[in-house]
Amino acid sequence: MVKIENLSKSYENGQIHALKNINLNIERGELFGLIGPDGAGKTSLFRILTSLLIPDSGNALILNYNTIKDYKEIRKITGYMPGRFSLYQDLSVEENLEFFASVFGTTIKENYYLIEDIYKQIEPFKKRLAGKLSGGMKQKLALSCALIHKPEILILDEPTTGVDAVSRKEFWEMLLKLKKQNITILVSTPYMDEAILCDRIALIKNGEILTVETPQNIINQFDKKIYNVKSQSMYKLMKDLRGFEHTHSTFLFGQFVHFIPNKIDFNTEYLEKYLLDNNHSDIFIKEIMPSIEDCFMELDQAKSD
C-alpha cells in the first residue's frame, strides 16, 4: 500500500536532518503507528506522503503512485488530518463537511455510512461555527472531513496530542471501527500506550527508525530482565538505584520504579540486601513484562551509546 525507499529530508540548508534514509512498507488494511517524540520527523514524513513536501532524495509511493509525479492521484486517495486544527473556523460544522465533500467531487450522502458513527456525535451542533467547538468535537469534525471522500488511506498526525485520557480512548475506539471498513490507517503519536493498539509500529527518533515490528514482537525481543520496585521513599529509591553496581537502567514508571539489571542471571536478593543496607523499608520487587515504553527507552539508549 505504502512503499518508502531511502527517503531523506533536511531543512535550513542541510543543517537539520528531519529524515535520514527512511525505508518502510505498509500493507493494505493495516493500522500502522508511527511512535516518537516531538522532532522525530513524523510530520515531515506525513507531509511527504500527502504530496505537500518534496523530499531531498528517495521515493514514496502510495498504491504505486509517486508522491511527486502523481500528486493529483495521491491527493484523491489520501485523507489527511494535520496536527494543527486546519478546518475553516468561520464555517459551520455542516458547511465544513459539505465543502470538503464538494472539493473531492462527492456528497455527504454518498459516503455518509463511513462517517456516521463519528459525525452523529457532533451532528446536534451542525450549525455551530467550527471555531467555537470544544477540542474533542473539533477532532471528530476533522476526522469526518478527512474521511468524506472515502480515501484508501487515512493519515493522522498526532490526533490525540493534548487530548485527555478519556477522549484519547474514544478516538482509538473510532479508529478500530474504521479499520474494519478496510481503510488503511497511518497514525502518529507521542503516547507509547497507544502503540499496543496498532497492528505494527515504527519507533522513530531524530529522523531515524529504531525498529518496525508488531507491538508484541517488540516486547518479545526485549532481551533483559525488568522489575517493578517500590519502597517507602520513591525519591530516595531512584537515587539509590542509580548508585547500585548491578543497575543497567532505572526509570520512574507510575507507582513503581522499573529496574533493569546489567546481567540476565540477576538475583533479586542482591537488590533487596542493597536496599535494606540503605535503610529502605516496605521493599517490593517483582519481575514483570516490559511495556512498549520500556522497549523504546532501551532502543533509544542503545542508539545513543
Binding site: 516518537g36 517524540p37 516531538d38 496530542t161 507521542p190 526509570f251 523504546f296 527507552m297 533509544d300
Partner: peptide, 15 residues
C-alpha cells in the same frame, strides 16, 4: 502540561 510531546527518557529526567 510541562512534558507534552517529550520523549520518555527526557520526560523522566524532567520529573
Amino acid at each position: 502540561e510541562p512534558t507534552g510531546g517529550v520523549d520518555p527518557i527526557t520526560r523522566r529526567q524532567f520529573w
